[in-house]
């Protein structure tokens, strides 16, 4: 049903045009004898066609069209202006001012029907294109979400592949990723950055895939040489993930190479110091160590929370970025909640 707005200060013309509009079929006319009231109506209603008289008190047709076109989303809606045959100058002004076509008085039904139908076809085409654009946009959004979800799942599975070769668990990945997000929140990072670290942090140890079993699974203390090989997982993880077009993979590469760096420059692989270490690496260092300390492993018992917190506090400015430790401790309620949600025994669905 087309909504046709008719504005004319003459009752007879309103009635006549309304009758002609109804005869077009599939049209619902809305009438105003006052252009100012019509304009007010247009603020909250979107007509499919406007038929407006030129000469009216308070506001003439030209001014109406100009004010109508200035309303948001009304610049494409077809407008037919009614003029007398001898008003050529008015027609020129109206065309420049945004009228699409004209009707001459006295109104001729054949001419009226043809012009009105043309305008309504134009409107139908506009709506079709707008609907199609909206549909396509929704489709792209849907597909993008699917791809992102797939990407997230893939990342989770890649991360788990590394963890499976390790005494650590899938729940560890989830906890440390969520702790990282808590720190990002506490540091005032944007929602997008918080989300990015949540998704990228699980890849911190992906390079363990490249570490031989006899080192990775060795129950006792590693020799100096073995530890040197073990340290290689940071670079291997970076090699695996770098140069990706995916933002998450790129962030994962950064986390992989930098999460064993220490704030005082004694970490590996590059011995970076302070803010030379990428922020995501400094964040993940705190999250990863805290979870490793507070988790039970075949070779060690879980630390209690106070002891783990003290370790973080003592490590400020040495192992850890003090700001990251502060942000982590400031989000303590979230930390406890995450520990509850992601226990080692029962893994929630991702």
């Amino acid at each position: 049903m087309h909504n046709v707005l008719i504005i004319d200060d003459s009752e007879i013309n309103l009635t006549l045009i309304k009758a002609l509009v109804v005869k077009l079929g599939d049209c619902s006319p809305t009438l105003f004898d006052n252009p100012l009231k019509a304009l007010e109506w247009c603020r909250s209603n979107v007509p499919d066609l406007v038929i407006v008289d030129y000469m009216m008190p308070d506001m003439d047709g030209l001014k109406f069209i100009s004010a109508f076109r200035a309303l948001h989303g009304r610049n494409e809606i077809p407008v037919l202006m009614i003029t007398a045959n001898d008003q050529k100058d008015v027609r020129y002004d109206a065309l420049l001012g945004g009228a699409n076509d004209f009707l001459t008085k006295p109104i001729d039904r054949v001419e009226f029907s043809a012009r009105a139908r043309n305008m309504l076809s134009l409107r139908t085409g506009q709506k079709f294109l707008a609907d199609r654009a909206e549909h396509l946009s929704a489709l792209v959004e849907e597909r993008t979400t699917e791809i992102r979800d797939r990407e997230k799942e893939l990342i989770f599975r890649i991360s788990r592949a590394a963890e499976f070769r390790d005494p650590e668990t899938g729940a560890h990945i989830q906890r440390m990723a969520h702790y990282s997000q808590v720190i990002a929140l506490g540091l005032g990072l944007s929602i997008a950055q918080q989300k990015l670290i949540l998704e990228a942090a699980p890849m911190h140890d992906v390079g363990k895939i490249g570490i031989p079993d006899y080192i990775l699974l060795k129950p006792g203390k590693l020799t100096h040489e073995e530890f040197e090989v073990m340290k290689g997982h940071a670079k291997i993880g970076h090699e695996l993930l770098k140069d990706s077009r995916s933002e998450i993979m790129k962030a994962g590469a950064e986390v992989a190479i930098s999460h064993h760096e220490k704030y005082d420059g004694t970490g590996y692989p590059h011995g970076l110091k302070g803010h030379q270490i990428p922020l995501f690496g400094r964040i993940v260092a705190v999250a990863d160590v805290f979870d490793a300390l507070t988790s039970e492993r075949p070779y060690k018992r879980a630390w209690d929370l106070d002891a783990a917190c003290k370790f973080l506090e003592d490590g400020r400015g040495k192992h850890f970025d003090p700001m990251c430790v502060e942000a982590f401790l400031a989000g303590w309620e979230h930390v406890l909640d995450i520990r509850q949600r992601f226990r080692d025994e029962e893994m929630p669905q991702i």
């Binding site: 009752e11 007879i12 006549l16 009758a19 005869k23 006295p106 109104i107 001729d108 039904r109 029907s113």
Partner: peptide, 17 residues
């Protein structure tokens, strides 16, 4: 002729006038 032969509209506008 201008009203497309529509007597109904003709009568309506005559009455109004």
């Amino acid at each position: 002729d201008r009203l497309g032969g529509d007597e109904e509209i003709f009568t309506m506008i005559v009455d109004m006038f």
